[in-house]
Design a protein around this nucleic acid. Structure first.
Length: 277
DNA sequence: CACGAGACCTGTTCGC
DNA sequence: TGCGAACAGGTCTCGT
């Protein structure tokens, strides 16, 4: 489930703590355990451990789908990919089956990166640009305007759905929120970016912001066994609603494949042919 | 530059 | 009931 709202929810949880555990801000790392080699993108384990132990967590941020822990010296970044999650738990707790990287803190708690599918990665770097350099704009940043979006749409000739999933175009959208935003904006997922009008670009940006904001407000979406704790899944308009009535017009929602990704849309509200006026 | 296929992984659910 | 196929919130690399 980790798209922008889910990562934001996790960032908030780490920042503010949970019912059982205090926030991880200002905690000092006392030990590092890597349980799956490929989870660590950079540097090598030897340097990773040497540089990390003794540092403390100064701040927690999110950029796109990346989670950023600012340390005394450098940054620890996580990307959750398909199944990653970060848990705060007692340092003595038994290792859960899918823990891949564990950081012990001096106060007897630990931060565990749990990731069943092993797609997630962690980076320890001195400059954020090493990892985040190619990311597109942050959709919720007020400085990003619909004029900016329109200009970028015009600069490419691509189908909207794959383009919105491209993190170098816009950072943070995944399969769920893209389908939801396109439905709200009444734009067909296969529409060419060059056919989007300035008005439609404005509607698209509004829609993206609306679905992301609601996702964050509901603590993200919980879909299946990869539990996260949010409840946005109860408010999906089209995602995984194939055959069910469109919430706007009642037409059955269609599912198509765009590349390898399931794509859900309303054939009436989101016509491919802009329709004669 | 745009697009498709294959790779990286495990767990759950679907279809016969 | 059992078993393989299909599918899942993501992204990278390579070839055309």
């Amino acid at each position: 489930m980790p798209e922008l709202p889910e990562v934001e929810t996790i960032a908030q949880r780490l920042r503010q703590g949970s019912a059982e555990f205090p926030p991880i801000l200002n905690k000092r790392i006392s030990a590092v355990h890597l349980l799956w080699d490929r989870t660590l993108a950079t540097p090598e384990l030897i340097q990773f451990e040497a540089r990390l132990v003794g540092q403390s967590v100064q701040a927690i941020h999110r950029r796109g789908k990346f989670l950023i822990l600012s340390l005394t010296d450098g940054f620890l970044l996580f990307h959750l990919r398909m199944s990653g999650d970060l848990w705060i738990e007692p340092a003595k707790a038994p290792l859960a089956p899918h823990h891949r990287l564990v950081l012990d803190f001096e106060d007897g708690t630990r931060l565990a990166f749990n990731d069943a599918r092993k797609f997630g990665r962690a980076w320890l770097v001195f400059s954020l640009d090493e990892v985040l350099g190619d990311l597109g704009p942050e959709p919720l940043e007020p400085g990003f305007t619909s004029q900016d979006l329109y200009r970028e749409l015009q600069a490419r000739r691509r189908q909207l759905k794959p383009l919105l999933l491209d993190q170098t175009f816009l950072a943070g959208l995944g399969n769920i929120y893209t389908d939801e935003a396109l439905h709200l904006a009444k734009l067909h997922p296969l529409m060419s970016s060059q056919d989007v009008t300035p008005e439609q670009a404005a509607r698209l940006l509004d829609s993206i912001r609306q679905v992301l904001a609601e996702g964050i407000r509901r603590n993200g979406a919980t879909i299946d066994w990869v539990y996260r704790g949010g409840d946005f899944q109860h408010y999906f308009r089209v995602y995984q609603k194939t055959g069910e009535p469109c919430p706007v017009c009642g037409t059955p929602i269609q599912r198509i494949l765009v590349g390898p990704r399931s794509t859900h849309f309303c054939p009436v509200c989101q016509p491919l042919d802009p329709r004669p006026a």
